[in-house]
Design a protein around this nucleic acid. Structure first.
Length: 563
RNA sequence: UGGGAUGUCGUCUAAUGGUAGGACAGCGGAUUCUGGUUCCGUAUGUGAGGGUUCAACUCCUUCCAUCCCAGCCA
């Protein structure tokens, strides 16, 4: 069942076999089960694209189900952000939105059934005692002294737990499995705990809540999920989920585990992301430096790029770390095709065209997207005083520097060939402006005499320019694997955000809208900030730079200098 | 040290007994009104040892390394 867009993988191979063997009567049915206690990140996107992509490809169905079994940590605002992020990614769960809390009554009945079957008991051990009785990795645990309570007693006590007759922590409901199991998850795991806490959906209806382990598998089962795809950390739990399925005699979901996504120079743990947000290392959950979906969205990533990336990284069980460069490649690959080009100067240097008439404005025709002819053209005004990028001029150019320098002629894109004649400096020797002459014969950017020029540079007409704030983002961390450090927060990149205030944009950008994406030619891809952009106060985020071979050459040259 | 899992170019992933392939990154070149894009070329890998076989990434075996599990978190 392979198709062109999604490469096959070991999970698809298992599903193919299950289909062939007729394991399930119905079609493939998957789910994505987030806990509403934080924002989704690109690692979740991998899981979503996998589960939902498979359902789509096999003409199956997929559910969205919130695993909301811990009211202490969960909030409705996270439910909303998660739904919005998944929709933005481009998936639609239609009417199949569920909550684990929808099943609290059923789960309670399941628990009662296990008690009645003598397979669960109320245990009065406190947290510390439970830990002691559990044993260690190498030693078996020992049975709780409450393990052999009668069914009637257990039923009565569980009822009392539910009725709020015990305070938090007084007792738990446990599955009676095997305290000597080498798999610690099978050593009489906790099914219910007492939490006198209001739940974001069920309010004060319950004061006991099922544990994740007593919830997840049964929810899958209740929703007739055929293939439940999850993180390898749940591999050790699978025998427990199967125990519940067998002893409850419910629909047998197949759980398959895969390795979660890691990317260099970032972190992918909700807990750590929360630390960054709450510790003000970043501004919010949707800070463009974060790998959260809302952060990437604000940064200017397209859903297509993220989905393509999820296809490209493949799928396996081994723990791995994908090179950030692959994400950026996938991003550029998409934006290159769809995004209009525009000229903007981030670090302006004034250029005076000495032989250009004072009051004259020429209208230059510029191509909007060389990759997409249907994007058409636009007019860009040219006049006597321009801005170019400061680093496009060097008074003493090193080898391989093709851009402007004294005496050298270059092309101003879509405009004229200009030649640098002189340089203005202030008392301290800083360059304040440069003087050029232009060749009127080269209007549009080509010379009738066929002479060539080594560089084409972007520019903006001073009197037509729009002022803008531009936010330059770089990796959030200075090390490839911040999670491996003692404290990842020590490695937050102090230069992960640089705010430029005095940027000059070509006037067509007047009409930009929040979230609109552009390529600033020769610089990178930029996105009008989703929240802070307005036409009075334009703010753009740099999504990613263009590949920059000149920067690479410079690096090599600097290295040589040092050696 | 019990149990579970995983080891293939620098990175991510294919090859399920029959030529170790792809992508990214790297390097070299061509084209280009973006040092962008595109195109072409190129180096690098099966954790280690032993065994079975005409043939082993694949099967057997002994090691080694890494990750997960001792929450009333998910």
């Amino acid at each position: 069942m392979e198709n062109e867009t999604h490469p096959t993988n070991f999970i698809r191979a298992i599903i193919d076999k299950d289909i062939e063997s007729g394991k399930y009567e119905k079609t493939v049915h998957t789910r994505f089960p987030p806990e509403p206690n934080g924002y989704l990140h690109i690692g979740h996107a991998k899981a979503i694209c996998l589960s939902y992509g498979i359902a789509e490809d096999y003409n199956g169905l997929y559910n969205l189900r919130f695993d909301d079994t811990n009211p202490v940590k969960e909030e409705t605002k996270y439910v909303e952000s998660i739904k919005a992020d998944i929709k933005w990614l481009g998936f639609d769960w239609e009417n199949r939105l569920y909550f684990a809390s929808d099943y609290f009554d059923t789960l309670y009945d399941y628990a009662v059934k296990l008690i009645k079957d003598g397979k669960a008991y109320v245990c009065d051990l406190n947290a510390e005692e439970i830990r002691e009785y559990r044993g260690t990795l190498t030693e078996a645990g020992k049975n709780s002294p409450y393990r052999n309570r009668t069914i009637e007693e257990n039923l009565e006590l569980f009822e009392k737990m539910r009725n709020g007759q015990f305070e938090n922590g007084k007792c738990t409901l446990r599955a009676k499995i095997d305290m000597a199991s080498p798999n610690i998850n099978l050593r009489d795991p906790i099914m219910y705990r007492i939490l006198h806490t209001n739940h974001h959906r069920t309010g004060d209806k319950w004061c006991i809540y099922p544990s994740y382990d007593f919830t997840h598998g049964q929810c899958d089962s209740l929703e007739n999920i055929t293939h439940s795809l999850c993180d390898i950390s749940f591999e050790n739990h699978r025998p427990l989920y199967n125990w519940f399925i067998e002893n409850l005699d419910i629909f047998p979901t197949t759980q398959i585990e895969f390795a979660r996504l890691n990317i260099t120079y970032t972190i992918m743990s909700k807990r750590k992301l929360r630390e960054l947000v709450e510790g003000n290392f970043v501004n919010s959950w949707d800070d463009p430096r974060l790998p959260t979906l809302s952060g990437l969205r604000r940064r200017g990533y397209s859903p297509t790029a993220i989905r393509n990336f999820c296809d490209k990284i493949g799928l396996a069980k081994r723990i791995s770390t994908v090179d950030l460069a692959l994400l950026e490649y996938t991003l550029r690959e998409d934006l290159n095709k769809i995004v209009p080009r525009v000229m903007a100067v981030l670090d302006p240097l004034k250029v005076i065209i000495d032989n250009f008439p004072e009051e004259q404005t020429d209208e230059m025709t510029a191509i909007n997207n060389p990759e997409d002819e249907s994007a058409g053209t636009r007019i860009v005004p040219f006049s006597k005083i321009l801005y170019i990028e400061k680093n496009d001029f060097m008074e003493e150019p090193p080898k391989k520097f093709f851009r402007l320098s004294p005496g050298r002629e270059i092309r101003l894109r879509y405009a004229y060939f200009v030649k640098c004649e002189s340089v203005d400096k202030d008392e301290t020797g800083n360059i304040t402006a440069i003087h050029c002459t232009y060749d009127p014969e080269t209007k549009g950017g080509s010379a009738p005499d066929g002479r060539k020029v080594k560089a084409t540079m972007h520019w903006v007409s001073a009197k037509h320019a729009i002022d803008a704030e531009i936010r330059l983002y770089d990796n959030l961390f200075t090390v490839q694997d911040p999670a491996a450090e003692d404290d990842f927060k020590d490695f937050v990149n102090p230069n992960s955000l640089k705010i430029l205030k005095n940027c000059k944009l070509e006037p067509s950008l007047k009409n930009a809208k929040p979230e609109e994406k552009f390529q600033f030619e020769r610089l990178g891809y930029f996105c009008a900030d989703r929240y802070d952009f307005s036409s009075e106060n334009p703010v753009f985020n740099r999504t990613v730079t263009l590949r920059d071979t000149w920067a690479k050459i410079q690096k090599q040259q600097n290295k040589k200098k040092k050696m």
